[in-house]
Structure formats: C-alpha cells, structure tokens
Design a protein around this nucleic acid. Sequence first.
DNA 1: CTGAAAGCGCTTACAG
DNA 2: CTGAAAGCGCTTACAG
Lengths: 338, 338
Amino acid sequence: MKQRITLKEISKRLNVSISTVSKALSDSPEISDKTKEVIKAFAKEHNYKPNNIALSLKNQKTKNIGIIVPEIVHHFFSSIINGVERYATGKGYNVVVCLSDESFEKEVITAQMLANGSIDGFILSLSKGTQEKQDFHHLNEVINQGMPIVMVDRVTEHVACDKVIIDDTQGAYHAVSYLIEKGAKKIGLITMPDYLSVGRLRAQGYIQALTNAGFEVNPEHVLKLEELNGGQEEIKTFIEKHDFDAVFGVTEYFAVTAMKAAQKMGKRIPEDFSVIGFTDGIISQCASPALTTVSQHGEDIGKQAAMMLIDRLENEGRELKYNTNVLKTTLIHRESTK
Amino acid sequence: MKQRITLKEISKRLNVSISTVSKALSDSPEISDKTKEVIKAFAKEHNYKPNNIALSLKNQKTKNIGIIVPEIVHHFFSSIINGVERYATGKGYNVVVCLSDESFEKEVITAQMLANGSIDGFILSLSKGTQEKQDFHHLNEVINQGMPIVMVDRVTEHVACDKVIIDDTQGAYHAVSYLIEKGAKKIGLITMPDYLSVGRLRAQGYIQALTNAGFEVNPEHVLKLEELNGGQEEIKTFIEKHDFDAVFGVTEYFAVTAMKAAQKMGKRIPEDFSVIGFTDGIISQCASPALTTVSQHGEDIGKQAAMMLIDRLENEGRELKYNTNVLKTTLIHRESTK
DNA sequence: CTGAAAGCGCTTACAG
DNA sequence: CTGAAAGCGCTTACAG
C-alpha cells in the first residue's frame, strides 16, 4: 500500500526544486530538455498523477458538477443523468449525483452541501415537496453565492437561472388530439396534483385538445393522483366507472396501469380502448401491447442542461443572460393506439 | 454575485488572526467566550461555510466515493446506485457516479481519473468489455496506490478486494426448479455469453435444476445473446422453433421479450407457457401479465457495498481482510407462472 | 487567551 | 535554466 507520489517527493529524490519538477512536467520552455527528460521519466516510472484536490484549491475550480434529482430508479431521471454524464465527461467534468427523494428538506440540505465548494455548479429538478411548499430560498441563496445552477423539467419562475424544459402542454395536446383523430369520443385523463408543474401543464394540453375538437371537458373524467408510483386501486375504479374508449396518462406508469385495468375488464387494446402515456421509457416499450407515448427525450434534456452549465462555468467573465431552452416532444406510435 | 467568505476575510474584518477565527468556529476551549461569540455571529451573518476542497487537502480525505457502472438507464444498476447514495449520504459522503458504457477503455480511463484524488475509494461493476478482455490491471494498479475498491455483481477473482454478489446459480436453480415443479417439461434458457460471470452462473443453475429433476440438458434449448438490450428477432425465432412450455430468461428483458413472442404465437400465459425472469425491475412489474422473477435486491447490494467501502475508509489503521458478501435472491411469484 | 508558523499538493510571478 | 516565495483555504502544534 504505497502512497501516491507527490512533486515534493520527486524533487527530493531528484535533488531539484519543486518548482522545477512542476514546470518540467507541464513541459514549460523554461526548463532544459535534459532536466525535463529525467524528471518525466522518473514521474512516469513512479506513476505520478497530480493531486486533483490541490489543483482544485489552486485553480478555484473543481471540474465537478452536481445533479440533484427526486429519484434515480426512474427511467426519465436516469436518462437525464445519462445525458449529463456523457456530455460532462467529454468536457472533463465529473458528475456528483444526489437524490432529494422528493423531499423539500433533503433538497435543501443537499443543495447547501453541494454549495460548500466540492463542485462548480449544479443541475436540479425540483422535488415534489419543494413544489408543494413553493419555497425556493435555498436555491436563490446558492445562486447569490455565485454558484450557477440549471433547472430541468420540474422548474419554477421564482428562481432566475438557466432552464431546460419540454413543451408539456403541447405534448399532451398532440397526444389527445391524436386520440380524437382516431375516433375516440370519451377520453379519460390520469394526472398529478396541480402544484406539480408538469402535471398542470399536461392537463392543460388535454383540455385544449378537447376544447379544440368541440368536446366538453368533464371534470369527472379527470383523475388526479398524489402518489406517483401507486394508485392502482384508484385507477382501476376510475376505469371501471366510466366507459372510456381512450385514456391519456400523464406518466407511463399511469398509462400502463390504466391499460392493464382495461384489459382485466376484457377490453381489447386498441380496438375497444386506446392508451397514450408520457415518457418513452422501458415500461412503454415492454408493455403488451407496447404503449404509444409522448417521448420527452430525457437524455437530450440532460445534455442541454450540462451544456448550458459548463458554458456558463467556462465563460464566467461575460455575464450571459439566463435562457430557457424548450425542447420538442415526439409522439411515438406503438400498439396501444389505432 | 458576491464570493463566498473565507476565514482570512473574517479575520481581516474582525481584526483577529486566522487561527483565532478557525478555533472560535470549531468551538475550541482555547478561545474566550466573548471572542467566540463575536466571531460566530459574524460568520453566521455572512453565511460562512468552510471550503470543502481546502478541508480535503488538509485532511487527506475527500468524503467522496465513486461508483462506476456499465450503464445507468437500467433498473438494476440504478437501484444499486440508489442503495449506495442512501447509505453514503447518511454517513456524510457524496457519491460521484461514472459510466463505463460497457467499454473496457472507458472503464480504464474512468478508474484512473477517479484515482486522481477526488474520491477516497470507489465501487464498481465490471463492464462487458473488461470481462471479455479479462484485463484487470487498471483495478489492481489503483488498489496498489492505496485506494480501496469494492466490486459488485459483476466481479472477478483476479482482483483482490471486497465484493458484494448474489448467488446467481442458486437463484436460477430455484427458478427453474419451480418451473419443473409446476409441470414444465421443456424449458428454454435465454442467457448471455459465458464470459459474463452472471450469465455463466445462472446458466449453471438452469443445468443443475434440470439434471436434478432427471431431465436431459439439450444445448439446442439454450440461446446465448451478445446484445443485452436487443436480440428480439433471435428470441422470436428461438421461441417459434421449439415448442417450449416454459422459458427462463437471465434478465427481465429477455424474459419479457420471450413472453411477448409466445403471446404473438397465440399461447396463453401461464396456461400454455410460463416465464421467469431475473431482476425484479419495473419491466417485470408492468408487463402483462406481470412477470414472475428472481429478485436481486439491487438496493441492498448497493447498501452493502457502500457499507464495506466506508468501513474500510474509516478503519484504515487495522488492515481488514477482504470479504465477499453473498446476498440471497428471492423468487417473486406473479402472473407469468402457474 | 491570541497569534505566527508550518503544512496539505500544487502553480506561477519573480529573482538570480 | 533553476529555485525561493507566495498563495489557494484550512487546521493545529507550538510560542508568547
């Protein structure tokens, strides 16, 4: 268990100064070729690697970026992280992944911890708790301390920073319009509570599509679920109670659960009952029949966010204005619609 | 955009030495109560937070751990990361997540980068490329430099370190035995190439179960797939060619793909055709019918690995022996079996 | 009770 | 061409 070798150690062993070693290894023209050669050979032989921590302290930048997501065992969020990781690694940055567990308190603690110098900036998607509480002081504080942040997907207008979102309303609008176009007359909506921005916006798209087609919007046809990974019973009752010929689910989980409920009732998909979900994840692909869904392109979102963050980090001089990048969604046609 | 305040700045503003400020903030008994009070009040007002990087350099430990996984958009691996993150955060550690993309080269680069001082140790699951190449010098090098690593799930005996695995053979054995018990006579196996440890071990379990029941093992009934997220065509052909009454898939993806192929052929699940998969992920839960599967408890694996790593980091004095922690699997009964 | 000094591992402006 | 010094932000053994 030999310790890693340092410049100091090399300088001692080679009887030169630390400065000389440092310069030689960075190939400075100040140093003679002969000295460089000796030093480089020795460094290589002993597998010298500069200590990142020391460099960070010296340079006042860590080349680390953080990302805080509500959960990680989730196709959409892990796709975002994937996009961030890929871009960041390409630019020489490491990614520190943190979870808020949908909790306001944990988000606050995590944001403060990240602000303690171990990273240069971070990306975050608001937790459920924070959106419910509408308290964003922790983020504004961090920004005030000079740390750039980029918000993705679950954002708020109460924090001034770069953002990457998708057009949730439009995505939902297209999906529901498609259902109507294919002949659906009675379309149910399964969504989240209004304080969750994406739920609210997607519900708007549903309403717009119905209105636009001259349908009436019946509040009875809308189910709002608190629990993002549960509510199977409620969905079952909802599907059984109304005689829908189509359902739009605001997550792929909602959609597939609705589809399974309809199947259990003996409905044929898509002849008797069509379904469209949101998020093109593994659930949609593996369901039988496979789900038609609105793809959010999570990896793109992550990539864009990482790009904006790193851009800002590397152009600290010129103050850029904050941007909001709105990405397009795509309707992916599969077997759950006609 | 005010910069974060440092001890130096506080000492200047309060006309005391840096040492005094440092001691006061750590509540040292050396400092008078009055001085402490003043300094603490000032620090609080200006929201002083010690710079983590400086602490890391001073303490020679970063309180960061790394994790390298082949991919992240994957239920099993994201579950492992989840388990690691939870435990590590509780212990005051940050988690740096890196991807190898199943590539040997990327794994080498990533391991070397992580060894450059930004973390205290890391957890890793071997990439496909590394297992194919059977080259582990990068890991042994890192260990030689004094950085502890813990391997999870995809491990090798050529690296001496702590490991957390599941009993793959036994998990597969139980699954296939269950199929036999329920009356299956002709059971297909969909697995990975032998150089992937988990594929090899699970295939062994399949063979043991058949042999134990007095069945003959027919190599024709075994399909080995290189592509972990593909092979739909091969699976379809395989299912169509043989008249299986059950299939055991070594991943949930293989299992669900086999099930869909059987369904398309008009087979009823589980009356005509039973399926069991491996990994209790979202795919298994959302498939229709829901998949019976061998749960690997990914989150537990992550938690155990983080525990072993942090244990080693915090007990550096006494050299602990390397351990291999073998976790039990559980067969989760759902709708794809009788 | 307070402060100057050394040190963690590095870089770089400045002397020689 | 080489090296001593200062500095990044902190802690701590040692003086006073």
